[in-house]
Amino acid sequence: MTLSTTIITLIFSFLLSVILAPIVIPYLRKMKFGQSIREEGPESHHKKAGTPTMGGLIFMTSIIISTLAISIYFDKLTTQTVVLLLILVGFGLIGFLDDFIKVVLKRNLGLTSIQKLIGQIIISVIAYFLLKLGPFDTTLAIPFTKIAISLGQFYVAFLLFWLVGFSNAVNLSDGLDGLVSGTASVSFVTFGVIALTYEQTDIAIFAFSVSGALLGFLLFNKNPAKVFMGDTGSLALGGALAMVSILVKQELILLLVGIIFVMETLSVILQVISFKTTGKRIFKMSPIHHHFELSGWSERKVVTVFWAIGFLASMIVVFLEVL
């Protein structure tokens, strides 16, 4: 029943996104929620200006409905489910406010970094205390070994760093049509399979719900995109992905499953450090997906190669951790 339940979840959330997108996209366009393109970005991106953004609302709605419906129907609604939805909605709300300020109020910077950080920390702390209401493992497993390090009270600091870090990492990666929606769908399926292996059906339902919703959204987000997820979607996905890794107690495996998000973030960090210390840039532009674009790769080629890297990394994890 467990495998069939997750498959039903994936299909259900996929169909919800497919149904919702044609309804929501025209509304976003009517409300003039169009994406603004930064001037210093690749010239080929300027034609994307005005494409509806805040599309994260589409798959977030699908995820919430399918997760709750399937969890309640199969009696799998748990505190962990509530925490996952809290992170998804909470981080998504921060992203929505950021998008709203930039797109509707026409303030290009949106929320400040400090404002976003404070919001993310508050939501993460609430999630931590909800988890602490029951038995909560504060050890950190070393991938592909039986070694686990006890962090004790320091685990809350790790949790904050992990949630905020990966939320922003996914946000940085959201710069090409379909890049995040495709890559993240594979990452969530991978953790869904891990959750099934550990008989954590509640987490598996959520993970497969996210993946299905993203695949449905991808039909409208692939190049040329009819809609962008915006910070509304990317911040929510990053936080939820980090929390899933925490709940299945395979936190560090996320560094491999989410290798694209790690690469994108490291490219930005290295670029900043290099420029501030030497005055020279390592990459033509960061995040690194822009570097490949400016090196002559088409947007579709960059996305396809990055998808392939993410898929291969996830398959390695499944082979070593599950099979």
Rank of each mutant, 00 (worst) to 15 (best):
L3H: 07
S4H: 06
S4C: 00
S4D: 05
T6R: 00
T6H: 01
T9V: 02
S17M: 02
A21T: 12
P22N: 07
P26S: 03
Y27P: 11
R38L: 14
E39S: 14
E40G: 07
P42R: 01
P42T: 10
E43T: 15
A49H: 07
T51C: 00
P52Y: 07
T53E: 06
L57D: 04
S62I: 08
T67H: 00
A69P: 12
S71K: 04
D75F: 12
K76I: 03
T78M: 00
T78P: 06
V83P: 02
L84D: 10
L88R: 02
V89F: 14
V89Q: 14
F91W: 08
I94T: 09
G95N: 08
D99F: 06
D99S: 11
F100V: 01
R107H: 14
I122L: 15
S124Y: 07
S124Q: 09
Y128P: 06
L133C: 03
G134P: 02
P135I: 10
L140T: 14
I142V: 15
T145Q: 06
K146T: 15
I149Y: 05
S150L: 13
S150R: 15
L151D: 05
L151S: 00
G152M: 10
F154K: 10
F154L: 13
F154C: 10
V156P: 09
V156N: 03
F158M: 10
F158I: 14
F161A: 05
F161Q: 05
V164Q: 07
V164M: 15
G165R: 11
L172D: 10
S173D: 12
D174Q: 04
L176I: 13
L176C: 04
L176R: 10
D177Q: 01
G178P: 11
S181Q: 10
S181N: 06
T183H: 03
S185T: 11
F188A: 01
F188G: 06
A195E: 09
T197F: 11
D202I: 05
I203Y: 02
A204L: 01
F206P: 13
V210D: 02
S211L: 04
L215I: 09
L219K: 06
K222R: 11
P224V: 13
V227N: 02
F228M: 05
M229S: 04
D231K: 07
D231H: 08
L237I: 15
G238I: 13
L241W: 06
A242K: 09
M243C: 13
V244N: 01
V244H: 01
I246V: 15
L247E: 07
L247A: 01
L252D: 10
L255Q: 06
L256E: 07
F261G: 05
F261H: 10
E264W: 06
T265D: 03
V268S: 02
V268E: 05
L270Y: 12
V272M: 12
K276Q: 10
K276A: 03
F283W: 08
S286W: 04
P287E: 03
I288R: 12
H291E: 08
L294C: 13
L294Q: 13
G296E: 14
E299P: 15
E299V: 12
K301L: 15
F306L: 06
G310L: 07
L312T: 15
A313G: 05
A313K: 09
M315P: 10
F319S: 08
L323R: 06
